[in-house]
Structures are given as C-alpha cells and as structure tokens.
Amino acid sequence: MTKRMIVPLLFGLLGAAILMSLGKWQLDRLAWKENILSQIDARIGDAPVALPETPDPEADKYMPVTVTGTFEPRGLRVLASRKIIGAGHRIITVLDVDGRQIMVDRGFLKNGDAPGAFPDGPVTVVGNLHWPDEISNFTPEPDIDGGLWFARQVPDMAATLNTEPVLIVARSITPADPAISPWPVDSSGIPNDHRSYAITWFSLAAIWLGMTGLLLWRIRRQQV
C-alpha cells in the first residue's frame, strides 16, 4: 500500500464506522421503542376502572375505563378512512355521566351509512382515555358549523361541545349501534421507524466502503 492510499483508506474506514455506529444506535432505539409499545399495549388491555375525577392527559393516557351514562344529541364527525372499508367518519358524541359531560369516540361510520337512533336509556361504554396528537401543518381547520373535523383535537372539540376535555375511545358500547363499528385504541398508530433508519445507515456504510474500495482500486491502477 502506498502513502497516497492511506488517507482515502482511513477516511473510508472512519466514515463507515460512523455510519455503522448510527445504525447500531437506531437498533438500540428500536429495542427501547418496542419495550415502550409493549407497555402501552399491556396498559390498553388492562381491566377497566372508573373514570377519574380529573383525568390527566399524560398520566392517564390509554387508561382503560368504564362509564355508564346517557348520550346527548350533540357531537361531531372526524374525517377518517379504514383499510378495505374505505372513507367515513369517527363519530364523537357527548355522554352525560352523572352530570359530567365528556366525549366518546363511538367508532367508525362508513360514508353513505346512517347511524341509528340514540338509545332511550343509559349506555355502558368500555374504552380508553386518549388525547390524540393528530395535528400537522397540513391539517385543515375544522368546519365547526358543519360539525366536520379533520383531526381529533380534544381541547378544541371540548370547547366546541361544552364538555370536559376528556375523550373515551370506545372498545364496546352497550347497547351498540350496528352502523358504527368501534375503532379502539392500539399502539399501531405510534410511529416506530427505527428499523428502517437502521437499515438505511447500514446500507450507507456498505456503500461508503464500496466507494472507498473503488477509489483505492483506481489509485492503485494509476500507479501501475
């Protein structure tokens, strides 16, 4: 090996080492994220408890609860789409629980379908407390007058419907509305892209080593 080849070799090895360390870091993050997701799934599936007096958006997120109350003829729709089924809306309805006004995400109603009449008496809702983070720079403003929203913005929806900023995403409602299918909380919507990031960094490291090898080969050819 000539002196002219030493610098490119060292540069290539250093660059590959940095890229591979970034890939290893992403694998560590993947293991951490999968552990977090398993904890979330375990909490979602716990036995439901009574609704807390003052639910906390951080401490009580995903808490399984059960409540019995009466649906109010007030609510809104959130534009949504489900695989295979197609476009529709999440149906958000106000539930009166012993004088407390909260919101229930009753589930998905397909476009063209009509919900059934509200039950005459009490309903029992089993679900999970949730404060979704669905807003992005591209989310349109809600059509408040038309009752159409494009993301579940719990504080804003609560202000519009004059309820507590509490949303229960139903797993089951008794009696049920056959037209509305529950769309319960799970961890599938939580981003976990660390595996693809790791593959990207390791691929870049391989390309970097390949380009380094090509450069060294060309230098060697020039010296022959």
Rank of each mutant, 00 (worst) to 15 (best):
D41H: 05
T174Y: 00
D177G: 06
P178Q: 10
N162Y: 03
I18C: 10
P178K: 13
G147Q: 07
A159N: 11
H194T: 14
G12F: 02
G45F: 07
N192S: 14
L209R: 07
T200R: 04
L167E: 05
P73Q: 13
G146C: 03
V123T: 03
K61I: 03
H194N: 15
M20V: 09
V166A: 14
K24V: 06
M5K: 12
D41N: 08
R90C: 06
G213L: 13
A159I: 10
P122K: 12
L51Q: 01
G15S: 09
A47T: 15
Q153Y: 13
T200H: 13
I207K: 04
P132S: 05
W208L: 09
D96R: 07
V185A: 12
E134S: 08
I18N: 04
P165C: 14
S187M: 09
K33W: 11
A170G: 13
I91L: 12
H89N: 15
G121K: 01
L79T: 07
A87V: 11
V49M: 14
D177M: 01
M5R: 13
V97C: 06
K61F: 02
P165G: 14
A198V: 08
N192P: 02
A87G: 05
M63W: 03
T160C: 07
A179L: 04
D133W: 09
E134W: 04
R195E: 11
R195S: 09
